[in-house]
């Protein structure tokens, strides 16, 4: 047996024994996060700026242009009512963005407020939980049909449906996050110091609980695009002649045999938008806890 290894072979490394963990590059400056931002950014840019570059009005009925295929004048062709599909698609994006970027945050805000309140008082907690149970027990589309029956179809109905779908999701999420964060050692550390409830809530509990909420926000935005589409297919979505991604897609489904390329535009935009939101959500989720 070799007693001692020849020590001269191994170089000693006299550097400091404690090594700090290096800073990580930003989540949205690389990989999935960047891809997601670019995809969503493309759709947003198309929705905001696109209509300026298209000479047709989305409501204008062009004489003699019924269900035309793609051409130089109409890159995506025309629809059954002689309107330019590209113009309608680009305006339709605006409606979907409005729903995603207004209805989802409003739902999230209300849900978070209710969820946060529930953690304060035990009786309130039970009441809120059962209310969420009832809301969650309805499949989203049944809830949508019911609400549309009361409110009538339209953009506002879609937004109200999205808000009411998101409230229990965000409420539950924030409630669990708050309960988890409240038990963490750094909250105990603040209590030892003598910090009051308000300080603990403001400085520690809420900022740390919002992490999962931000992930869910991106996910819910993609779901909102689906809800809008599904309601349009059922005929309870955005009311005609107003365009939306779902409305343009629904019309195209009736004429797949006459103009198969009709469906291509709305499908591509929906796919890019949903993929973008999902990538952002995944990247944000992967960055949590690091």
């Amino acid at each position: 047996m070799t007693a001692t290894l020849d020590s001269a072979e191994i170089p000693e490394t006299p550097d400091a024994p404690e090594v700090a963990v290096p800073r990580r590059p930003g989540t949205f400056r690389r990989g999935k996060g960047l891809v997601g931002l670019v995809l969503v950014g493309l759709v947003v840019a198309a929705g905001l700026l696109g209509p300026l570059f298209v000479s047709w009005d989305p409501y204008q009925q062009i004489p003699g242009a019924n269900l035309l295929g793609p051409s130089a004048a109409h890159p995506l062709g025309t629809d059954d009512l002689n309107r330019d599909i590209l113009a309608r698609l680009l305006s339709g994006i605006r409606v979907d963005l409005l729903i995603s970027f207004v209805a989802v945050p409003v739902g999230a805000l209300i849900g978070c407020a209710v969820g946060a309140m529930a953690t304060v008082n035990n009786t309130l907690d039970i009441a809120v939980q059962r209310l969420f149970d009832v809301l969650l027990a309805f499949p989203q589309l049944i809830l949508a049909i019911g609400l549309a029956a009361v409110l009538g179809p339209g953009t506002l109905s879609v937004m109200i449906v999205v808000v009411s779908v998101e409230i229990p999701i965000f409420g539950r999420l924030l409630r669990t996050a708050v309960l988890r964060v409240r038990e963490s050692p750094f909250v105990t550390a603040a209590q030892v110091v003598g910090a009051g409830k308000g300080h603990v809530l403001r400085v520690h509990v809420l900022p740390n609980s919002l992490e999962p909420v931000l992930v869910q926000l991106a996910l819910s935005m993609s779901v909102a695009v689906f809800i809008e589409g599904a309601m349009s297919v059922l005929g309870i979505g955005v009311s005609p002649p107003e365009p939306s991604l779902g409305a343009v897609l629904t019309t195209s489904l009736h004429y797949l045999d006459l103009n198969p390329l009709f469906a291509l535009g709305p499908l591509a935009v929906t796919a890019v938008l949903v993929l973008g939101f999902q990538s952002i959500a995944q990247a944000a989720n992967a960055a949590r806890g690091t």
Partner: peptide, 13 residues
């Protein structure tokens, strides 16, 4: 008060 877990007792944010 000094805690056992130096990671967990500091708010990551």
């Amino acid at each position: 008060f000094v805690f056992q877990d130096p990671g967990g007792s500091l708010d990551p944010r």
